[in-house]
Design a protein around this nucleic acid. Structure first.
Length: 463
RNA sequence: UCCGGCGUAGCUCAAUGGUAGAGCGGGUGGCUGUUAACCACUAGGUCGUAGGUUCGAGCCCUACCGCCGGAGCCA
């Protein structure tokens, strides 16, 4: 069907021109002047087009008067300057063809406030609301901006595997993937015989593409992944999903400072991009969801993020004139309340914390010269918390081997990962960014379940 | 998984242990270039589930289910 996007119609400068728009009715108001106002939305923009449907239209009584929120129509008409005050233009209909009626008694989205909790139960209809339409458009813009950012900098997009049978990812609980009959498991010596399974050994859904990403960075220079990630943690918070999307760049010939620079450049790029390309949607979020959103994004788009070492962070927290629920001490991980204090109270901006104690970080992070800390970094955002976790990777074969052993891991499981250090190893670094968390931050949406179309969380995989 | 809160009309929420209510949405009528429209009338309920206490439970107790917030784990 040839149609005009409502976004383009609303922005059109011409008048008295023929247009065809198609979409879903948001609301209908009747005038006793002998016509109805129909507000139509097709998802192309936040705003609706107002359609004037005269009672002289042949299907006015039989169909147009029966249009309620949710009904779908195609309207052929003329774009004119609006006589009313709420909108610049409107469409005077020559024809309103109803594609699908929508019974108001059954349709859950009426002209009323519906809670986000309720909308999660009707996730197939919630994209028709103002909020979720805006979320999707911002999410789309952030995805597009991500590819643009890395492509402009000559990073290659690498597709790392979703299913992985390597036992060595180590980040969080894995979902198991199997074709075995769970009611009749093949047993051998008292244990499940995975030789019978599809891959001949236990397999799971990826919890990170990093290790595979490193192999491509150590051949092609700079790469990034952008794909689904799965964590079978029983996490019930507003910042966790069991299935989420993660962006993981990896740079060869790079150290931790390069890594932190990239992370900050990337975040600023995203903020700038949505500010320039999602004006209407962000204005809505700023008005209805988070009053400081535009001010915050605008400030951060050009700001330098605070960068401090873990040791400095601990000193700051020890001197803090507030009492924390959890004690602060060098050698323990920073608690949420500590991170929030740093970003929201001390610096009031994103904070990159670097050089954590080796004991609390992953085995693959590069040991610093002090031999007490590793070249790790976390980027913390106000409200959202940890959005990026990254590091310079341990590129010295013997030290990596030692770290693997010290962590109680089996070096044989990491033979190919160790090979990268045997054959022309180079310093390299990268990070992982939780895509939904950046969507949360850029929309001000409070719950991560409302920034992904169909959230998967413990006890919930509907739709 | 732990701590706290919540579950009542299609939706958002009220209701000292004593006859279940309002607003929005729907229907009918009125009014209007309207725009969260407005005014009047009207229909609409197994109070999350299962037990228990009580003369009597939406309200008190127990268990379970689900949702929300915080924590942990992390992105």
């Amino acid at each position: 069907m040839k149609r005009d996007l409502i976004k383009d119609v609303l922005a059109a400068t011409g008048r008295d021109i023929p247009v065809t728009v198609a979409g879903w009715v948001r609301t209908r108001r009747d005038s006793k002047g002998g016509f109805s106002f129909i507000e139509l939305n097709d998802g192309s923009s936040f705003g609706n087009i107002q359609v004037i449907a005269d009672e002289k239209l042949p299907n006015y009584e039989s169909e147009i008067a029966r249009l309620f929120p949710g009904g779908s129509v195609v309207v052929k008409g003329t774009l004119v300057a609006s006589q009313g005050s709420g909108q610049r233009v409107e469409v005077v209909a020559d024809e309103v063809r109803v594609l699908g009626f929508c019974e108001p008694n059954d349709y859950p989205l009426q002209k009323q406030r519906v809670s986000f909790e309720r909308l999660r139960e009707i996730a197939h209809l919630r994209p028709r609301t103002n909020t979720f339409g805006a979320v999707l458009r911002v999410r789309n813009a952030l995805a597009w901006a991500t590819h643009r950012f890395f492509q402009e900098r000559q990073f290659y997009y690498v597709h790392t595997p979703i299913i992985t049978a390597s036992d060595c990812e180590g980040a969080g609980e894995m979902f198991q993937v199997t074709t075995l009959d769970l009611d009749q498991l093949p047993m051998r010596d008292g244990a499940v015989d995975f030789a019978e399974d599809f891959f001949g050994k236990p397999a799971g859904l990826t919890v990170s593409g990093q290790l595979e990403g490193e192999t491509y960075a150590c051949a092609l220079g700079n790469i990034y992944t952008f794909g689904p990630t799965f964590r079978a943690e029983n996490s019930n918070t507003r910042r966790h999903l069991a299935e989420f999307w993660m962006i993981e760049p990896e740079m060869a010939f790079a150290d931790l400072q390069d890594d932190a620079d990239l992370a900050e450049d990337y975040l600023r790029y995203l903020f700038t991009y949505v500010l320039e390309n999602c004006v209407e949607d962000l204005a809505f979020f700023n008005q209805r969801i988070e009053k400081t959103l535009l001010e915050t994004l605008t400030r951060l788009a050009t700001s330098t993020f605070k960068r401090i070492t873990y040791t400095e962070a601990v000193d700051l927290l020890k001197k803090a004139p507030v009492t924390f629920e959890f004690p602060v001490g060098w050698g323990t991980d920073l608690q949420s309340e500590h991170e929030r204090y740093l970003t929201e109270e001390v610096f009031k901006c994103p904070v990159t914390v670097i050089n954590y104690p080796r004991e609390i970080k992953a085995f693959y992070m590069r040991l610093n010269d002090d031999e007490k800390t590793v070249a790790a970094m976390d980027v913390l955002l106000p409200q959202v918390g940890e959005i990026i976790g990254g590091s310079q990777r341990e590129d010295r074969h013997d030290l990596l081997m030692q770290r693997i052993v010290d962590n109680g891991l089996n070096p044989e499981d990491y033979w190919w990962y160790l090979d990268l250090r045997r054959f022309g190893g180079v310093p390299h670094a990268g990070f992982g960014l939780g895509f939904e968390r950046i969507v949360q931050f850029c929309t001000g949406m409070h719950n991560i379940r409302d920034v992904i179309p169909f959230p998967r969380t413990p006890k919930n995989a509907s739709f």
